[in-house]
Nucleic acid binder design. Structure first.
Length: 605
DNA sequence: TAAGTCACG
DNA sequence: ACGTACGTGACTTAT
């Protein structure tokens, strides 16, 4: 439902612009939105700006619409210079939906947007992280208003047009509405956040400042050694060809090694290999676990495993990353999504820099291509055992608290408790078991899952779990209480009060409910870790600015921050970075960050 | 567009 | 008896 009356104005003259400048200069809060040529934040050019200070009354300033017989528009440079003082003034409060994006667009035109007081994307995320946060959904949910969508205006697929081709009257209906709806969404959602002290803290002290830091991290980008990756691609390609040949020979025919369907036909129809497990759709699985199992008795699965690992490295990393280099900056600029992961974590896209290989020797080499510019080094600092420390804090389990307080190896200490040994007497096998158990605890494991991971019988796994909970009663109580809480409230909280909703926690569907219970166990730990590293990012960037250092934050990988640091600042950053990360909060256990330095990301680990 | 698979914390 | 460790994003094939 549209509001009773709207007044949307297309600004085409200096007189109109002057009038709107007077309005936004005086307004306590201005809703701001940009229309652009592309969704790539680092490349998009501004096509228009919309403004709204009062529900139903908005302006669209077209700046670069270029279609046949388009009306004359105010010149973009002229308008931006006219607005620069207001845009860059931190004391003039602005509001938007995903202002990190708009900040990039302004930066693309030399404007440093300041004074972002509110962001409806982040309000929605803090209020209900598990729901959708796009403006069309928010307008339907909170305003019962159906908005004009981008697809309505520009079409989709091959026939989609660029926004600069949209007629001014239609563009105004769409763009002015966006600014208008954003202001109304703020008026509806902000009270939901403001009425709760903890949610306000998450929104104001964590999410809003994090958005500003993220925009800078994204703009900084990371330098890639494209030649090195090309060399690796060539080598991977050669090896894949050889493996392919072997696979055809073993199969007795050529087939597409990338096709699970064709692999299934060869394995289970032609060669009659046993079906180890099935996919959710009921077809026999050929995933890594299955291939490992089959490789014990047959040669082809092993060959396929090798092929898969190389193929992954080549297509997703060594081939792709060089193509993601921005020609203007010579660097790779990821996009951090701040309102996607329900737990409070960030995610990274185009490219995803949070899943660069590390677990295999082969894969690690890709990190050698993440390099520092001449005269700089890469510094990486990661939180040590952050989620287990948070579990110790939340559960107040005496044995866990003591182990961390005394700086013990936590897996060794855990094994000592389970197997009733002094830490020094724990075997490497026992430590490995304890490590798997500790990970399982963070994920809300079952005896079945633990058995699968340890490669033991379910009864044996159950025995380890029983022993664990006998020695760590605090952890057992914490998990029981968490489940009870989740069922009673429908949500659980991080240490800082971020809410993680569990819509299926009381579902009559057993598997779904149990899934929600596991998520409830995991969420406070994963979510608190996310809170902590966001606070770290804010603290580190504040410190770099205050000290006027030229070191740049260039990546965040959940428990790790990566910086590119001039050699002159190396000693200072290397000392201070882990201190800042450890000092962002005082929990019942000490926080610890470990730092590494090198010419590339691999060697900084 | 969905399914399967696999990279990370 | 059921399904079975949390949270992500990208690539490839096949429909």
């Amino acid at each position: 439902m549209a509001p009773v009356s709207t007044s949307y104005e297309t600004v085409l003259t200096d007189e109109q612009l002057d009038k709107w400048m007077a309005i936004i200069e005086a307004a306590p809060l201005t809703s701001l939105d940009t229309e652009t040529t592309s969704l790539e934040p680092m490349r998009a050019q501004m096509v228009g700006i919309s403004l709204c200070c009062e529900p139903g009354v908005a302006a669209y300033i077209p700046l670069a619409h270029r279609y046949q017989d388009a009306p004359a528009q105010l010149e973009r440079g002229h308008v931006l210079e006219r607005m620069r003082g207001w845009l860059e003034n931190p004391a003039r409060p602005k509001l938007g939906q995903n202002m990190k994006y708009d900040s990039h667009i302004f930066a693309n035109h030399g404007i440093r947007l300041a004074g972002v007081a509110h962001d409806t994307l982040l309000q929605s995320y803090v209020f209900e992280s598990h729901r959708s946060h796009d403006m069309d959904s928010l307008a339907l949910r909170h305003l019962e208003r159906k908005t004009i969508t981008y697809t309505d205006v520009c079409g989709k697929g091959a026939s989609q047009i660029c926004f600069d081709q949209v007629a001014l009257d239609r563009a105004t209906e769409y763009a002015a509405e966006d600014a208008d709806v954003t202001l109304q969404l703020h008026q509806t959602m902000w009270p939901h956040v403001a009425e709760n002290e903890k949610l306000s803290y998450i929104y104001e002290k964590i999410e809003l400042p994090t958005a500003t830091v993220l925009q800078r991290v994204e703009r900084n980008g990371v330098l890639i050694d494209a030649d090195l990756l090309a060399t690796q691609s060539n080598e991977l390609g050669r090896r894949m060809l050889e493996i392919e040949r072997q696979a055809y020979e073993l199969a007795g025919q050529p087939f597409n090694l990338n096709s699970p369907k064709q692999i299934g036909e060869i394995f289970f129809d032609k060669l009659k290999l046993p079906v180890v497990k099935k996919t959710p759709s009921g077809t026999p699985s050929t995933d890594e676990e299955v291939l490992q199992k089959l490789a014990e008795d047959y040669p082809l699965p092993k060959v396929l495993l090798d092929y898969r690992s190389l193929s992954k490295l080549k297509s997703t990393y060594t081939d792709k990353l060089p193509r993601m280099v921005n020609p203007d900056t010579g660097r790779v600029h990821t996009n951090y999504a701040q309102a996607v992961a329900v737990t409070g974590r960030l995610s990274s896209t185009e490219p995803n820099l949070q899943n660069i290989p590390i677990r295999t020797v082969e894969g690690r080499r890709i990190r050698e291509a993440f390099i520092a510019a001449p005269g700089n080094v890469i510094i990486s600092a990661d939180y040590s055992q952050i989620e287990l420390r948070i579990m110790a804090h939340l559960s107040e389990d005496p044995a866990m608290l003591r182990a961390f307080a005394e700086g013990e190896d936590i897996h060794r200490a855990t094994a000592g408790e389970i197997f009733a040994l002094a830490p020094a007497e724990v075997s490497s096998e026992q430590r490995r078991y304890a490590k798997v158990i500790n990970f399982g605890l963070i994920y809300g494991m079952s005896a079945f899952g633990l058995a699968g991971n340890l490669g033991v019988e379910r009864a044996a796994a159950q025995m380890y779990i029983d022993k664990y909970f006998l020695r760590f009663v605090g952890v057992r109580n914490f998990m029981d209480e968490t489940r009870v809480r989740a069922k009673r409230d429908g949500y659980v909280e991080t240490v800082f009060g971020r809410r993680l909703w569990l819509p299926e926690i009381n579902s009559p569907n057993g598997p779904r409910r149990q899934g929600a219970e596991r998520a409830a166990i995991n969420a406070p730990m994963q979510g608190t870790a996310a809170d902590l590293i966001k606070l770290s990012m804010i603290a580190v960037q504040d410190w770099l600015d205050a000290e006027k250092l030229t070191s740049m934050m260039i990546m965040q990988v959940h428990d790790e921050l990566v910086l590119e640091v001039p050699e002159a600042e190396l000693d200072l950053v290397k000392t201070r970075l882990p201190q800042l990360m450890a000092g962002v909060a005082t929990l019942r256990v000490p926080l610890q960050a470990e730092v590494g330095v090198g010419p590339n990301w691999e060697q900084a680990h």
